[in-house]
Structures are given as structure tokens and as C-alpha cells.
Amino acid sequence: MASQGTKRSYEQMETDGERQNATEIRASVGKMIGGIGRFYIQMCTELKLSDYEGRLIQNSLTIERMVLSAFDERRNKYLEEHPSAGKDPKKTGGPIYRRVNGKWMRELILYDKEEIRRIWRQANNGDDATAGLTHMMIWHSNLNDATYQRTRALVRTGMDPRMCSLMQGSTLPRRSGAAGAAVKGVGTMVMELVRMIKRGINDRNFWRGENGRKTRIAYERMCNILKGKFQTAAQKAMMDQVRESRNPGNAEFEDLTFLARSALILRGSVAHKSCLPACVYGPAVASGYDFEREGYSLVGIDPFRLLQNSQVYSLIRPNENPAHKSQLVWMACHSAAFEDLRVLSFIKGTKVLPRGKLSTRGVQIASNENMETMESSTLELRSRYWAIRTRSGGNTNQQRASAGQISIQPTFSVQRNLPFDRTTIMAAFNGNTEGRTSDMRTEIIRMMESARPEDVSFQGRGVFELSDEKAASPIVPSFDMSNEGSYFFGDNAEEYDN
């Protein structure tokens, strides 16, 4: 783990906690998980779902989305002020799938948001429990990260689609708070800032007046979040320049895209947490497990152990491969979309394939898809080993990566060399080191050039047997250095459309 220093740990961010010791953190995270579980059980009762239907990941996603929508204050306010045809701002819903006479049927349900809020609060001892809501947002974000390569979004903001390893959390809503900021990748933060800068260039009043003052505060806050992700002084200094700019424009845009590229080699610290679907927490609570009393951590053995003992089902389209669908969801559960496939294969105990080789589309089923041909199958979400999630980018030494994705962002704290394609990355730096950030740029390029592919990161860190909950005997895996390590390699994943 990167030293926490003055930073709060993510469990504290996750639970809005002030400084807590490890036991208190485990208890408050457990409380959050228990609340999600209780809410899910109650919703299944309301909807009269069978046990099997309640364990269907598509039903879980609909129920999670309903509660997130019920608590989305800004959108609710907007919907009330701008009524649109056929949208009731006070209601929320989605597809629920039921097994009827041996076939899967889709039923569109509609609930009062007020009623959903009441059920959620009741499951969370009367609190709004925003930490639990954020947790579900991060699960949705991790699922998107594993399912889609955001080529269009990258290109629109002047970045290269091969930089997708920097895009963790790119679909997280803005209201996801400190826990959300911690899991956002460098590219995601750059993209958010670039969008602001572009608006400022096109709209003279963007930075002016009372609204402009708020915009400015948001801009500086985002700059500080991004600065905190960088691990070298030169990158941090460049972020200070971007933040202090009187009138952010093209120079800042250039600096930010430069920094994003540099992060492929001088990786930023991005938190990883295993956020599971509500249909995993519900049955665990129903079986009598007391998360608050037992304590829970999002970055240790607990999620692995929970998945070892969970039964989750998914709808499967006619030509999809259930094992591939399982891999997709497994990666999402562990926030591992940008991790090295060699490491993932070792931990999972079966070969993890790149996205383009998977015969599976996303987990969600569109409303126009034919239910007649839908089957369902068990998702295999178990693992051979477990490993500690990392909050750091690993040290800054790398190795060759593949054509589709030119770097990785480690999820697990496991000893290995970190793949990246130096030639491709360095070719993108057209040696432009003039301007006010020239000395920093020169320094950053120097550090990137001296990074050695064969150097090892996370020295001495290994994986653990599932029986080793105290992480007492690390097993340090050895990897084939020459092997392909990137998930979005030469990829044809669908595009994420909101």
C-alpha cells in the first residue's frame, strides 16, 4: 500500500469516517454492505422474486439502478423543472426478469421514488447511507470498465484509444464523492478537466460571474484530485501550473494530454476495490451473516471469500459463452479491467482472455432483445487465490505491452514486471518541450526514458491461498515475461453508450 500519510484510507472515504482504527473501519464497511443486503432482500420480497430470480444479476442491476435514481437529487430536480413526455419524475423502474413456464419473461416495473427511498433508509437504520449508494455506483463503473473500451470518449477529448488503461471510473457520476474520486484513473480526471476547458473556450461566460466562481472551485478541486494521483514531483508541479492558470485554454489542454500520456509509464495511484452486485450481499445477509459484527474490507480476502460461497446467475444470449460472461463479471467484481492478464489468470486459476476474444456482450439486456431465446446460467466467480488490492500504480518500471492497449494499471499487489510499449508511448511525445512547463516536461520525458521494462514492481508481494486469511504465506508467482498482458488488445469491444 502506498503510505497513507495525511490521506484517509478508502474504507474511511467509503464510510465518510473520520480517523478510525482498522477494526472500526471493518465494522463501518460491514455496516454499509449489510445495509445493501437488507435493502436487496426487501426489494425481492416487494417484487415477489423467487430465490433464483433474486440471484439473477440482471435483476440486481435494475434494483441497484432504481435506488441510485431515487437518490439522484440533481436529476430529480431537473426532471421536475423540465417535464418530458412519458417520463414521470417521481417514478423509477426498469426490467425485471421472471421464469414463467420454463421461459424467461421481461416485466417492466415502476415504483415511486419516495417508496424506494423509504425501503433503502429502513434497511440502513434510517440513514441515507450515501456510502452504500456510492458502492453500487463503483460496481456499475467497474462493470462498464470491463465491458467497454471507451474509444470515442478518448478520441473526443484528444487522447489515444490505446490509453484505455487510464480510464478507470470514466462512467462514474460526478456525485460519487471521495470514494469515487479515489477509483478514477488519470485519464478519467484528464477527460473531465478537458471537457471543462473546452467549454470555457467555447463559452465566454463559463468562468464568469457567480456560476463561474463555482465552476472555478470545481476545476481547482479536480486538479488537486489529479495532482494527488501522480507520484513524481515534476508531474505534480505541472498540475500546479494547470490549476493556477488564470484562464484555462489550449496550453492547459496540451499540458493535460501530455500528463495523461506520461501516466502510461509514470503511473498514478488509483484505488481498486472489489464492489459486488447487491444480489451477492442480499443472500449472505439472508443466511444470517452479520457483516457489521464480522467486519468487512473491500481490499482484502473478504470479497473473494464471499464470491467463493455465492451463487449468481445471468441471462445468456443464444451465441454467448457462459464462461466468457463469467470472466467479464469476475473482472468487474475485482475492479480488474486494466490489470495484467498474466496476473489475473494466476489468481483466477483459469486463463483470462483479452476482451476481443470473449464471445459475450454486456450483462444488460436491451429492451428490444428477444426473450424467447434467452437461457440462463451460473456465473463462475470463484478464484484459485486471493491478493491484496493496490492503491498505487506500482513502481515506475515497465515491460512490453500489446498493440491495442499500451500499458496497464495494476489492481493487485503482486510481484511482476509491468508491461508497456515504450516505443509507441515515446513516439507520441513530439519533443515539444517549450513553453512555461518546459523544464517539467524535459524531466518527465527523462524519467520515462530511463524506466526499464525488466524491473520488478511490488517486490516480494504474492497471492494467498483462500485458507490464508491473515495473509501469512505469500506465494510469489513467476510470469512468462514475453507473454501478452493487455485486456483490450487489438480490440473490438462495443462502445459504451450512456
Score class of each variant (00 low, 15 high):
residue 468 D to R: 02
residue 364 Q to D: 08
residue 435 G to L: 07
residue 79 L to W: 11
residue 154 L to E: 02
residue 318 P to I: 14
residue 302 D to E: 14
residue 443 E to A: 05
residue 363 V to T: 12
residue 473 S to T: 05
residue 418 L to V: 15
residue 182 A to N: 09
residue 428 A to E: 10
residue 176 S to T: 15
residue 330 W to E: 01
residue 162 R to W: 10
residue 446 R to E: 07
residue 283 P to V: 10
residue 356 G to T: 04
residue 63 I to R: 01
residue 192 E to D: 13
residue 228 G to I: 00
residue 70 A to C: 15
residue 175 R to S: 11
residue 4 Q to N: 10
residue 83 P to H: 10
residue 367 S to Y: 11
residue 372 E to M: 07
residue 129 A to G: 08
residue 396 T to W: 08
residue 443 E to N: 08
residue 207 W to N: 03
residue 260 A to M: 07
residue 2 A to K: 03
residue 284 A to V: 13
residue 458 F to G: 02
residue 44 C to E: 13
residue 431 G to P: 09
residue 199 R to G: 13
residue 217 I to Y: 13
residue 155 V to L: 05
residue 53 E to H: 03
residue 129 A to C: 14
residue 26 R to L: 07
residue 189 M to L: 14
residue 50 S to W: 00
residue 95 P to F: 08
residue 336 A to N: 01
residue 158 G to K: 02
residue 449 E to L: 12
residue 249 G to R: 11
residue 177 G to C: 07
residue 203 D to H: 15
residue 92 T to E: 07
residue 445 I to C: 14
residue 324 H to M: 04
residue 131 A to T: 05
residue 290 D to L: 14
residue 9 S to E: 03
residue 165 S to F: 09
residue 333 C to I: 10
residue 374 M to K: 14
residue 461 R to M: 05
residue 179 A to V: 09
residue 458 F to C: 07
residue 444 I to P: 13
residue 86 G to W: 10
residue 456 V to F: 11
residue 445 I to A: 09
residue 104 W to I: 12
residue 7 K to G: 00
residue 452 R to M: 06
residue 225 I to F: 12
residue 330 W to M: 03
residue 342 R to C: 02
residue 265 I to S: 04
residue 305 R to S: 13
residue 419 P to I: 09
residue 68 L to M: 05
residue 379 L to M: 15
residue 297 S to R: 14
residue 350 T to D: 00
residue 243 R to Q: 09
residue 198 K to G: 00
residue 217 I to E: 00
residue 314 S to D: 05
residue 204 R to C: 01
residue 408 I to A: 07
residue 165 S to R: 01
residue 409 Q to F: 00
residue 128 D to V: 15
residue 413 S to A: 13
residue 135 H to T: 12
residue 160 D to Q: 08
residue 483 N to T: 12
residue 367 S to T: 14
residue 5 G to D: 07
residue 368 N to C: 14
residue 159 M to Y: 03
residue 407 S to I: 08
residue 148 Y to M: 06
residue 58 Q to H: 10
residue 156 R to W: 07
residue 360 T to E: 01
residue 40 Y to L: 03
residue 25 I to G: 04
residue 344 L to W: 05
residue 48 K to H: 03
residue 99 R to I: 10
residue 471 A to H: 03
residue 365 I to N: 13
residue 407 S to P: 00
residue 243 R to E: 01
residue 297 S to D: 07
residue 296 Y to I: 05
residue 432 N to W: 09
residue 480 D to N: 13
residue 438 S to M: 05
residue 351 K to C: 13
residue 255 D to M: 08
residue 189 M to H: 14
residue 201 I to V: 09
residue 278 A to K: 04
residue 375 E to G: 12
residue 395 N to V: 04
residue 306 L to N: 02
residue 232 T to K: 15
residue 227 K to V: 01
residue 98 R to V: 05
residue 376 S to W: 03
residue 291 F to P: 14
residue 64 E to N: 04
residue 483 N to A: 03
residue 267 R to A: 02
residue 195 R to V: 14
residue 490 G to Q: 03
residue 19 R to Y: 00
residue 95 P to D: 09
residue 143 L to M: 13
residue 50 S to Y: 01
residue 454 E to V: 12
residue 391 R to V: 14
residue 437 T to A: 07
residue 98 R to N: 02
residue 227 K to I: 11
residue 65 R to T: 07
residue 283 P to H: 13
residue 81 E to R: 00
residue 150 R to V: 03
residue 403 A to H: 10
residue 128 D to F: 12
residue 49 L to Y: 02
residue 33 I to F: 10
residue 154 L to M: 08
residue 80 E to Q: 06
residue 193 L to G: 10
residue 249 G to N: 10
residue 387 A to I: 00
residue 474 P to W: 09
residue 162 R to S: 06
residue 215 T to M: 10
residue 214 K to P: 10
residue 465 E to I: 01
residue 343 V to C: 10
residue 448 M to P: 02
residue 225 I to K: 09
residue 228 G to E: 09
residue 86 G to A: 09
residue 91 K to W: 04
residue 28 S to E: 10
residue 154 L to K: 01
residue 37 G to T: 06
residue 236 K to F: 02
residue 270 V to E: 00
residue 145 D to F: 02
residue 59 N to H: 09
residue 236 K to H: 12
residue 96 I to V: 13
residue 407 S to C: 05
residue 137 M to L: 15
residue 474 P to S: 15
residue 492 N to H: 13
residue 149 Q to Y: 07
residue 478 S to C: 14
residue 219 Y to D: 12
residue 236 K to V: 01
residue 215 T to F: 07
residue 179 A to R: 00
residue 248 P to I: 10
residue 480 D to W: 10
residue 397 N to C: 03
residue 484 E to G: 09
residue 359 S to G: 13
residue 409 Q to M: 00
residue 145 D to T: 02
residue 158 G to M: 05
residue 102 G to L: 11
residue 450 S to Q: 15
residue 140 H to L: 15
residue 163 M to S: 06
residue 145 D to A: 10
residue 469 E to C: 09
residue 161 P to A: 15
residue 393 G to F: 01
residue 398 Q to P: 02
residue 146 A to M: 08
residue 142 N to S: 13
residue 130 T to D: 03
residue 75 R to G: 11
residue 127 D to P: 07
residue 201 I to A: 03
residue 394 G to V: 08
residue 290 D to I: 08
residue 127 D to E: 06
residue 299 V to E: 04
